[in-house]
């Protein structure tokens, strides 16, 4: 372990906001990329199911 305490780990020797900001941003972008396809698929299934019901099913 490179840090003496959890507080030092968070502070990153004064660079805390930069380091944690970058990791936070990365987490956001990764989460977006991981969640977006699922959302798009659920929307497609919902809309397509409605279309299929209207046209009398497959």
């Amino acid at each position: 372990m490179n840090f003496d305490s959890f507080g030092a780990f968070l502070a990153m020797g004064g660079h805390g906001p930069y380091v944690w900001g970058c990791y936070g941003l990365t987490l956001l972008v990764l989460l977006y990329n991981l969640l977006a396809p699922g959302r798009r698929q659920r929307r497609f299934v919902r809309e397509q199911a409605a279309r299929q019901r209207r046209s009398g099913g497959p």
Partner: peptide, 21 residues
């Protein structure tokens, strides 16, 4: 990268951004 790697002798801890950048 965040907790175990040693700090960079020039840039200190800000170099840890390398692991996502």
């Amino acid at each position: 990268g965040l907790a175990l790697a040693p700090a960079d002798y020039l840039q200190g801890n800000s170099f840890r951004i390398i692991y996502v950048h």
